[in-house]
Computed example of a mutant assay.
Amino acid sequence: MATSVLRIGIAGCGQAARIHVDRLLDQPDLEIVGCADSHRESAEKLAGRIAEKSSKPPAVFSDYRELLELPLDALAVFTPHLFHYRLTMDALQAGCHVFVEKPLSTNSQEAADIVSLARGRQRKVGVGHQYRLRPSLIEARKRLAADAIGPLRLVTAVMAQPWLAKQQGQGAESSWRFDPKIAGGGLLSDAGDHLIDALLWTSGRAAHEVFAVQSKLPTGLDVVTAATIRLAGDAPATLALSGVSRGSLFELTFFGERGRIRATDVVFEIDDGEGAAARQVDLPAAGESIDGNFLAALRGEAPLSCPADEALDTVRLSEAIARSAAAGQVVQVV
């Protein structure tokens, strides 16, 4: 980087931004130089929060394009999904690296455009798929790559949470998550994006085709999605998302010819066919945050945990699931 202190701008100053900013402020040699939100009050509140921990308060804007006129090394995008594409493209055009909260974009063509522009401008784009940093999923990916359970024959991926109940008492800043008329709203493209990415990244396989069904409210909001996916190597996978559960579950199970691996967001369990019962494996404490990883990548100290070209595969599969459910047909993942 040109300077030892990384200069970051924040676009979108709601709940997600507050979570990420708290982690960013724990990082050394970092200055958050500006905050932008179409609701200026949100930008002012976040700037005040930053000023409490920083010797230099950030500038405040209601238009992110004004923020991009500042000398920035990177822009962090925490807006609703619908706006990820335009902000990321404009930031790349302005010469910035970009961290964008998942998903990379709301359709695969936009996501491909981002990947192409980032390569052309030689800029890094990191995507907020922080489940890739969970020790349980890291261990599952490592064991699968080492053929610990033999040829993979089936994968099941499940996410259940009281997502629909979150509508109660939601403020305006998060209401878009539950509005099917706004691109990006809905369980599949919101919380479900984490499970889809975890399925592809942990298995190390691309998705080729999918058949899916959805249960929706009269408003059109998706609350349950079920899909059968053909992965590379003709390994079938089933994916189930429920936003009407009383409790929460995030679980992937891999069935091989010699054994089984089960990974939740916090637990890793393996039956490796050696005659013993399935056993839990002690895991190390969680390491870096997704924000810390992005900054380390900018400094050349580590690769991006989730670069844009890998997040593109997640967008493609999510889009194919939605298209299949709408058409009632098998859809190719392209």
Results as ranks from 00 to 15, higher is better:
A297C: 12
P57I: 11
A278W: 11
L133D: 11
A74L: 03
L152C: 07
D313Y: 02
D222N: 07
Y64H: 04
A277R: 05
I114A: 04
A191Y: 10
E269V: 05
E101W: 08
Q170K: 11
R121M: 07
L317M: 08
G169P: 12
Q332S: 13
E173C: 00
A2C: 00
P57Y: 04
D234R: 14
H20S: 13
S174P: 00
R7D: 00
H39T: 06
S108M: 08
V98Y: 00
E110G: 07
V155P: 06
L241H: 05
G220D: 09
L152H: 09
V213K: 07
V315L: 02
A2L: 13
R141F: 01
A206R: 12
L241P: 03
A145C: 12
S245Q: 12
A118D: 10
A297N: 08
G273L: 02
G120V: 01
F294A: 05
L46T: 10
A327I: 02
A36V: 02
H208P: 02
A36M: 09
F78G: 03
S245A: 13
F61Q: 08
T238E: 15
D313S: 05
A94P: 08
Q329A: 14
D222P: 06
L317W: 07
F211Y: 10
S175V: 12
A59P: 00
R132Q: 13
S318A: 10
E52P: 00
R7L: 01
A296T: 03
T253H: 05
A91K: 08
I32G: 10
L164Q: 07
D190G: 01
T106G: 08
E251S: 10
Y131M: 01
P28D: 03
H97V: 07
A322G: 03
A11V: 15
A212E: 07
S305M: 05
F178E: 11
A212S: 14
L312Y: 04
A278N: 03
L188F: 02
R262A: 15
A145K: 14
W176T: 09
S38L: 09
A311T: 10
S324E: 06
I196M: 12
E31D: 13
G275M: 10
A276R: 04
G259A: 11
A43D: 06
A206H: 01
I261W: 11
F61V: 00
V5S: 07
T106Q: 03
W201F: 14
T314W: 11
D26N: 15
S38Y: 01
